[in-house]
């Protein structure tokens, strides 16, 4: 297995697989995270998946207090123990989440002009794919998704909006995404969903997780 391990800080280590955006590598990331969680160790805080890497956060002070001479070498060795070749990937049932969207976004016309497509065609192309969630980040509950039809790719707004409402569905470059919270942002807004993407009082916290699939449904 090809990978590279690099300290992110003295409290975190990142393991990089081949730096490529693919469901196979992302599956490997998710399976590795699961293995780490199931084989936790002293000082372990959390493991965070990204597109083609995972990062383990650990409590350096706790490890020092427990007598570990080099917490970095200790945690690195734990990450090297991941049985990459025998990890079960890909045979998990697909977690497909349907998100109802009202396609009435303020920037629908901009996307239309850029893509030379009608509103109807934009909606058709946007609701067609099953988008894969490759990574969570940017905001709590925000999913970086892959699979946007390249005909819909539209550059960000030159001047970001100061307030994009929660639930806004947008396009930025080759990506599509949903704002889980009100936030400033430069995405071209094409629609809105009433689904709650992030709720700190809910046990699940976030509607979406890395590895999930999303299908938009026009309402």
């Amino acid at each position: 297995m090809n990978y590279r391990i690099h300290p992110l800080s003295e409290n975190a280590i990142t393991l990089y697989f081949e730096q490529k955006i693919s469901p196979e590598i992302n599956d490997l990331v998710i399976a590795s995270c699961l293995w780490i969680e199931e084989n936790s160790f002293p000082g372990f805080i959390e493991v965070v998946p990204a597109y083609a890497s995972l990062t383990v956060f650990y409590d350096l002070v706790e490890l020092i207090n427990q007598g570990y001479k080099s917490p970095f070498l200790f945690v690195k060795s734990k990450m090297q123990e991941i049985p990459f070749e025998s990890l079960k990937t890909g045979n998990k049932p697909k977690n497909l989440i349907e998100i109802p969207v009202e396609y009435s976004g303020e920037d629908l016309q901009i996307v239309g002009r850029h893509s030379k497509l009608s509103e109807k065609e934009i909606i058709k192309l946007h609701t067609e794919p099953e988008y894969r969630v490759y990574m969570m980040g940017f905001l709590p509950g925000f999913a970086y998704m892959g699979g946007l039809n390249q005909k819909l790719a539209t550059p960000r707004k030159k001047k970001p909006r100061l307030k994009v409402p929660a639930g806004s569905v947008g396009i930025a470059g080759a990506q599509t995404g949903i704002y889980p919270l009100e936030s400033p942002g430069g995405w071209q807004l094409i629609g809105h969903t009433d689904k709650k993407l992030f709720d700190p009082s809910d046990r699940k916290l976030s509607l979406l997780s890395t590895g999930d699939y999303v299908k938009f449904k026009a309402v």
Binding site: L8, S9, N11, A12, T14, Y16, Q19, K20, I21, V48, A50, Y51, A52, S53, T55, F57, M135, G137, Y144
Partner: peptide
Amino acid sequence: EIISSSVAFGT
């Protein structure tokens, strides 16, 4: 190109 990954306080 860089593919996004975790960052930390101090990155």
